[in-house]
């Protein structure tokens, strides 16, 4: 790897990280480095100062926040998320999405915070966090603030986290037994960036017949991870039937502007959104019915 020259600053506390980011002009936070370093290697990214926060011990954790939420430190690796018993119990869609990220080596290094802040529209975790209505806690020179997921992702590779701030932790809700979920990534080869990624949460009525609430997060189809709001609205309160799920899948492409690449044209991605929203809904509904005792 032959990047352009850069300065490297390893910090060990959040305060030190913020101080360095404030001092330097062209600073960039380095967490697991699994997206940033490949870009630097290709010289497509060349930050002046890398502020390595991976040595901050208190940013890697997964802990309960009361009964209804889980807080995940931003330096928690994908592998840790994938194997967290607490998340598996309270918010199993997140470990499921983390398990499909790239390969074991990358999951050992890549972090949930790094992936969120890099905001690659094709990453697996951001649409999942969007569907979860997660909350992002950001610290900066003026203190800390919490941003809801729907505001966090601003544009291509751009989030609410400013140049002199760092993402501290992410809070996700506990999903009750009436919830079903699915995370489907469609790609040509195991572990690759998805051609489309679909994170789905459904909440059913007590009979398992009606959709009380549906949230659909999509990856790789817009400049940012996004929600299929039209489909969500359409499904709310509907009785579950194959025709309804198919119609929702059709509506899930509303407002999408997927880019094209050699693995999938814009049209193909739109087609695949429909396929995987429908399949994802079926899977999520099945799971919710099983969990709710209505198989």
């Amino acid at each position: 790897m032959y990047p352009r020259p850069f300065e490297y600053r390893a910090v060990t506390t959040v305060d030190e990280a913020l101080r360095v980011l404030h001092e330097v002009e062209d600073g960039k936070v380095l967490a697991g480095g699994q997206s940033l370093l490949p870009l630097m290697k290709l010289r497509l990214a060349s930050p002046g100062v890398l502020v390595d926060i991976s040595g901050i011990p208190d940013l890697s954790y997964i802990r309960p926040q009361g009964e209804n939420a889980v807080e995940i430190g931003s330096l928690t690796t994908h592998d840790t998320v994938a194997h967290s018993a607490l998340l598996q119990e309270r918010c199993p869609i997140l470990p499921a999405a983390a398990r499909g990220i790239a390969d074991q080596q990358i999951r050992n290094r890549g972090t949930i915070g790094g992936s969120s802040c890099h905001a690659d529209p094709a990453s697996d975790l951001p649409p999942t966090l969007l569907a979860l209505d997660a909350e992002f806690s950001i610290v900066g020179p003026k203190g800390s603030r919490t941003v809801p997921a729907k505001e966090f992702f601003v544009d291509l590779f751009e989030t609410q986290v400013q140049r002199d701030e760092i993402l501290h932790h992410i809070q996700v809700p506990t999903l009750g037994p009436q919830w079903g979920w699915s995370y489907t990534k469609f790609n040509r080869r195991e572990g690759d960036y998805p051609i489309v990624g679909v994170a789905i949460l459904v909440r059913l009525d007590s009979h398992g017949r009606r959709l009380e609430e549906v949230r659909i997060g999509l990856a790789a189809v817009n400049p940012t991870p996004c929600r299929a709001r039209a489909a969500e609205r359409f499904l709310q309160g509907q009785e579950i039937s194959p025709a309804i799920l198919k119609e929702a899948a059709h509506r899930s492409t509303e407002g999408l502007h997927p880019g094209s690449d050699m693995h999938g044209s814009s049209q193909y991605r739109r087609d695949m959104v429909q396929v995987f929203v429908r399949r994802g809904l079926e899977e999520a509904v099945t799971r919710a019915r099983l969990a709710g005792g209505n198989p």
Binding site: L42, R189, E190, G191, D192, D261, M262, H263
Partner: peptide, 13 residues
């Protein structure tokens, strides 16, 4: 132009 798009098979494929 890179291994992101030139997809070599792995043992999973």
């Amino acid at each position: 132009s890179s291994f992101t798009d030139y997809l070599c098979a792995t043992s999973l494929d």
